[in-house]
Design a protein around this nucleic acid. Sequence first.
DNA 1: GCTTGACTCTCAAGTTGCTTGATACTTTAC
DNA 2: GTAAAGTATCAAGCAACTTGAGAGTCAAGC
Lengths: 253, 253
Amino acid sequence: MKYTVNKLSKLSGVSISAIRFYDEIGLLKPTCRGENGYRYYEQEQLFLLQQILFFRELGFQLSDIQKIIGSNDFDKVAALGSHKRVLLQNIKRTKELVNTINKTILYLKGKTTMKNEELYYGFNSEKQASYEKYLIDISKVSPDVIYESKEKIKNWKKADWDRCHSEGDKLNKEFAVAIENDLDPASETVQQLVKRHYEWIKNFWTPTKHTYIGLSNLYSEHEDFKKFYERYNSHMIEFLVKAIKIFAEENLS
Amino acid sequence: MKYTVNKLSKLSGVSISAIRFYDEIGLLKPTCRGENGYRYYEQEQLFLLQQILFFRELGFQLSDIQKIIGSNDFDKVAALGSHKRVLLQNIKRTKELVNTINKTILYLKGKTTMKNEELYYGFNSEKQASYEKYLIDISKVSPDVIYESKEKIKNWKKADWDRCHSEGDKLNKEFAVAIENDLDPASETVQQLVKRHYEWIKNFWTPTKHTYIGLSNLYSEHEDFKKFYERYNSHMIEFLVKAIKIFAEENLS
DNA sequence: GCTTGACTCTCAAGTTGCTTGATACTTTAC
DNA sequence: GTAAAGTATCAAGCAACTTGAGAGTCAAGC
């Protein structure tokens, strides 16, 4: 089934001009052009547009979306899992906003007191956090606190995403080998691997001792990460947690 | 306590340049200016900024926010109640998105079938609906389906909001008088009032027989509306429901 | 009293993600 | 066979900011 701009627009709710605009900037190219110059879209594009809408919903810039989606090993299913997590987070955030409303109403009616900063609970912190969390998440990592990531990643090109992703994959495979060879998490070889992992993480954000250990704990607590890492080796998570703890205690402050 | 742009920015999470921009367009003026030209904000502005953020969160244009907030009888508590309702609606919408994700994942894994339109459930319809619902809501009415409202209200000035609001208030008071005088909902006098109510509603949206009756039912089902109308007279809702039903059956199609 | 650094101001230009409008060709429906 | 509806390109406009330049202000430490 071929979709013209009009049909695609009606199906997806995206305006025709936006669709043409996405073509112009190379975000969503039509499958082909008719002899008349008409744009025609097919199944693959429908999925891509859905992905674009999810990223857009989460506040990503089109240029960032392009880099992520254009990345060689962009994994639709994994991305959808991440979208889901962030959306669930947004629900929490919205509930916090509702809570802020309830408190403000009570305050305005003179029934409680309220700190001025409480007026803005739910507006900023968590939304930002979720954006930045997300960037990491896409590369299969999700720390608690990230401030630098956005700045750094902002200027990444498609190739950077590809490189970063494959470096992460390589690293994980080496960890798996280490586990298979029954190496000690404290051994020099493994600690060198952790060091590389730490450097890799620094692509996004520079953890402290505390947050780096927190990150490893996050791996084990988060079902999706767990699944992701256990694809490499079923003991991957516990091993990583131990190795990272040792590295952090000895090398970070 | 006086807040400079910097302090207000840190408290609210809104950027300094945005704060200055809001001053420039007259959306949020500082309480006063120092002799040095510095902007100083106080308590009242903190609440106003909170309101602005809620409206912004719900996708309103700054120009619309200005008209609504600038309206004479803009009621903070009522507005917060509306914000809350729309946010709860957004939670529903987000849950629908999550559902769409779940379905898409299953589909991509080949475990179910899926219609192409289902790819986009949750992205468009409900968000638009909530925006438009909201416009009405602010004027204390909230129908199910509104398409024209946005277009019409878009060009309203502050004075239009004021006029509309006071016309609504006047009308409700006349209904209350009619009830006190024990008039029949079917009587000529009351039906004339309903006609004016219908014309007033058309400010936002033109109901059909079905949707106009639906609107009156909404009044009785929605706790906030109920409270609002019962401020005029405790039997207001039942009376309105009856009167509107008669009017709709006889005059609309 | 002076410097330093953080903060403030204004004003102009740039950015993102579109939308709108002009002009012109193509397809579809009666 | 013609009108309506849909397609194209290209340029300009718009909302809501952000960024940058240039200049004045304030508070802390020496």
